[in-house]
Amino acid sequence: MNSYWIGIMTQTGIYLLAVLGVCILTGFTGLFSFGHAGFMAIGGYVSAIAVKFGDLPLPVGLLLGTAAAALVGIAIGTPTLKLRGDYFLIATLGIGEAIRMILENWEFVGGAKGLTDVGSGISFPLVLCIDILVIFMLANFLRSKHGRNCIAIRENETAARAMGINIFRYKLLAMGISCALAGLAGALLGHYMNYLQPTMFNSVKSNELLIMVIMGGFGSLTGSIISALILVPLPEVLRIGSAQEWRMVVYGLLVVLIILFKPTGLMGYRELTIRGIRNFFRKIGMLFRKQAARKEE
């Protein structure tokens, strides 16, 4: 096992967090964010500044990055979550681009040339632990009362409001969690690469995050995980000729097809559980038994 493949897996684990972040937002508020890479950027740069200029230890940096992204997310969410779906979309697009451009013009963090030597120390085991911890916490959250409230909002907002659920507060919560995850991912990425540059967080990245969530099914954690596990390493596996452009063409086509035929994506709103797998096999078993019974007739 060489460091090249470990590196790919580490990057996958890092982007997975951001994908989960987008998943939480879209799956549980029904709002799409076109600028989530901007929150990754916030996390990355805040952590980098803390470690490089503030001489703070890495974990503190990561925490600060995550918190900063969450705070900015909530600050921005407060006025925008009330907007209609596509207004929110354009707002997030604008925010993502604005954040990137501000960073490009900010000399203190190197501007467009980027920031080097921001501090390293991210290893695959660390990322794996963080991933497992986060997934554990998210799954727990979804089973909790708060999580079920979020799901209620997603299913039918009016009914949820009638039940007394404070829609706005939960949407804001989802936004906060979502941006926190993106920020964490950004901070991890920066320290993994030991280098940050605003172009690492451009709209292409935001689009890719969104695409992964759509393909996996935006209401499902497992869907997003599977999607990320397959799609993040894909560019590395496909290193031939115009493969990268064809990859994007296929993505675009898949997105259109998915929206046309199965908008809920691969996993829809379901999660992968052991009971689910057992049921699946049971169904197949029953199918075979039915066939056998029919033959005997």
Partner: peptide, 27 residues
């Protein structure tokens, strides 16, 4: 919920094993 966790860990471990095998010629 614990089942989800178990599943995720299993997946992660499988992935690690798979990529260990994927290591190609060393130069």
């Amino acid at each position: 919920m614990r089942k989800v966790l178990a599943l995720v860990m299993a997946a992660a471990l499988t992935l690690s094993l798979l990529t260990a095998c994927a290591s190609s010629d060393d130069g």
